[in-house]
Design a protein around this nucleic acid. Structure first.
Lengths: 195, 195
DNA sequence: TAGTAGCGATACCGATGGTAGCGCAATTGG
DNA sequence: CCAATTGCGCTACCATCGGTATCGCTACTA
């Protein structure tokens, strides 16, 4: 059992400051060597940290990358002025984050690792997607499945471009993407072409 | 040098029929064990073939998967009646293919492998994307960058849904995706909201 | 029948994700 | 200052995977 000192923090070695260093080293390594090239050994070396330290703090490579992405993305900045502006801001914000060095590759990499690993997919969905899903649902006042589709379209498109070309999406295409989303999910005068 | 017999095929063991068996075994294995779980050993075993045979026919795992996907997708069925119907048919066709067992996971897996391997990305882009890019460009009469964006949106969205949920996109969402694409790329009465 | 190209099997290599155990250093409470 | 505790670095290690080399053999063609 832990003695649970009154001052909260138990005695022992420092546990602050390492996360930030590791996150930075992770993105840097992924940016330079790609997702597969960013081995745990290399990330540890880049962070000036022992590999065992990584595994003492994160249960797997996927968990580390996911945590790194959560840290990088942070909270979604929404002003709540209008639905159009919120969607526009959210997409531009996501595009800018994914365009940061290493972020797109890390995202896509952990994403596919999750396809073979339900546990990792659970982590991804719960800790990375759900917070934004809830924030958007509440701000936009849309049903959850509609917001989910918006997220799929936005993130999927940005990642696919990143993966196929190796470079982030140019601003003109981001603008077109936003325009398209607004037509469908904001203007929305009902289905124009029924079936 | 190869003797180059007049009848075309040089002497030796049969080389027909193996590809189809391997492709089927590949998708089956990916479907059952995920992309990472589908090792070359297991694919070979599932196909009843030696691993050396795989490497004699495909230079890498990524190349095998890509070839398998090319074989699965085949030519894009376009009637050329109207742009709306062509886009709609193309998206539904892609959604149906990606929904087939193993196809979505294989696609996403080789996609991310490509992010760390420019040579594989070249293969992917040239042999899997370019044919559809050209076909759509000619049929739709759209500039290449616009078609590229349509492909990013379609494939990216379908793969993202598949990756996050583990299941293919339901028909209602595919319909909404198509409707959105048509509003943006067919109706297109010019930008409705300037900047 | 003879020659040839491809197949199966085995053994092997380097790299990678992940683990175990040890000594030690940093922090806190007394 | 001292002692207890906790986490860190280091080394060694394991199983697995992508990929290669080699060899005997077999199915095909001329």
């Amino acid at each position: 059992m832990t003695p649970a000192t009154p001052s909260g923090r138990p005695p022992g070695r420092p546990r602050a400051g390492i996360d930030a260093v590791v996150f930075a080293a992770t993105l840097r390594t992924v940016h330079e060597l790609g997702y597969a090239g960013a081995t745990m050994d290399r990330i540890a070396a880049a962070a000036g940290v022992a590999k065992t330290t990584l595994y003492r703090r994160w249960p797997s490579k996927g968990a580390l990358i996911t945590d790194c992405l959560i840290d990088t993305f942070g909270p979604l900045p929404l002003k709540g002025v209008s639905r159009a502006e919120d969607i526009s801001a959210a997409v531009r914000w996501g595009a800018a984050r994914i365009a940061e060095p290493g972020v797109g590759a890390a995202f896509a990499g952990v994403f596919v690792d999750g396809m073979s690993d339900p546990a990792l997919r659970e982590i991804l969905s719960k800790w990375l997607q759900d917070p934004y899903l809830r924030a958007l649902r509440d701000t936009l006042g849309e049903p959850e499945d509609r917001v989910l589709l918006i997220i799929d379209i936005t993130v999927g498109t940005l990642l696919h471009r990143m993966g196929m070309t190796g470079a982030p999406m140019v601003d003109a295409d981001v603008t077109a993407l936003i325009e398209m989303l607004l037509r469908q999910f904001v203007d929305d005068a009902g289905p124009k072409r029924g079936r």
